[in-house]
């Protein structure tokens, strides 16, 4: 794979990833487009610039670990991993079909290069922190990156893990909250408001950075700040737009978990051309 720190190149990859997300969910006739599109720049920046990993050697001991807590957003993860060369690009459209490695939620039995099987919300941060503990014991430079949904952090286990990460001073762990303000049943503020979100993380002892989750340079700067932060874990509260990049999906709760029709897909791909 060709890694790059050039924001324009990363933006081009993000555009390709968005097209693949829309196409695979349309082909599957089910899936979660909104939260996949909101996390696209975050995953592209991690996989193509920030994280140390090697698709030719996926079990490299000192690799950085990525855990997608919000497992339902796996189309963005599948697309990015395929773009990196971990898995076949030409099979993305088998998503959610029987026998496909691209399962409805990430499944290590089908893609061993995944670090965790997720899908039950609230568990990913604990897993990433456990991996960070192992890295520290091994004297390894490996870092853990965990992407959470903003609805997901309503789960109590997230805050058990938040306490754990700060208490154990896991400065090799980074949590990114994809703060797109929408969950399945509607707007987060109407279902179970998570505000004041940055204050919550600060109170739990995390180095907290608020960032535009669609600005690649801003994400790059935030990840650099996280790496330079010692003695505490870092959280990025990434302000994003659900359905980003497709006009009729943006800020529309319907597209949390609804597949586009063929006509909607055509329209979306035009916008993402």
């Amino acid at each position: 794979m060709n890694k790059t720190s050039n924001p324009q190149d990363l933006a081009q990859i993000a555009k390709r990833v968005r097209r693949e997300i829309v196409s695979m969910i349309t082909a599957a006739k089910s899936g979660h487009p909104g939260g996949s599109l909101s996390a696209t720049e975050i995953l592209v920046t991690l996989y193509f610039d920030v994280m140390k990993h090697d698709p030719a050697n996926p079990k490299w001991a000192d690799r950085d670990r990525f855990v997608l807590g919000k497992g339902h957003a796996c189309p963005v993860l599948y697309s990015v991993m395929a773009e990196c060369g971990y898995t076949p690009l030409d099979k993305l459209n088998t998503f959610r079909q029987l026998g496909s490695i691209y399962q409805g939620h990430p499944d290590v039995r089908f893609i061993p290069a995944l670090e965790a099987s997720t899908g039950s919300l609230g568990e990913g941060l604990s897993l990433g922190l456990g991996m960070a503990c192992a890295a520290r014991l091994n004297g390894s430079p490996s870092r853990s990156y965990v992407v959470l949904g903003d609805g997901e952090i309503q789960e109590g286990q997230i805050w058990e893990a938040a306490m754990f990460g700060a208490f154990h001073k896991l400065d090799n762990a980074v949590c990114i909250v994809d703060y797109n303000k929408i969950q399945l049943d509607g707007f987060t503020k109407d279902i179970m408001d998570v505000e004041p979100l940055a204050d919550k993380w600060r109170a739990f002892g995390w180095h907290t950075i608020e960032v535009d989750g669609h600005s690649i340079p801003a994400l790059q700067a935030a990840f650099a700040e996280a790496s330079a932060t010692k003695g505490k874990p870092t959280v990025l509260v990434a302000h994003t737009i659900k359905g980003k990049g497709v006009s009729f999906m943006e800020n529309n709760p319907k597209f949390h978990g609804t597949a586009p029709t063929a006509a909607e897909c055509e329209q979306a791909l035009k916008e993402l051309a």
């Binding site: 965790a116 604990s126 456990g130 991996m131 503990c133 192992a134 286990q157």
Partner: peptide, 11 residues
């Protein structure tokens, strides 16, 4: 889940 993370990383 912390234990599962440690075990996933080889411990």
């Amino acid at each position: 889940a912390i234990g599962a993370g440690l075990a996933s990383a080889g411990k």
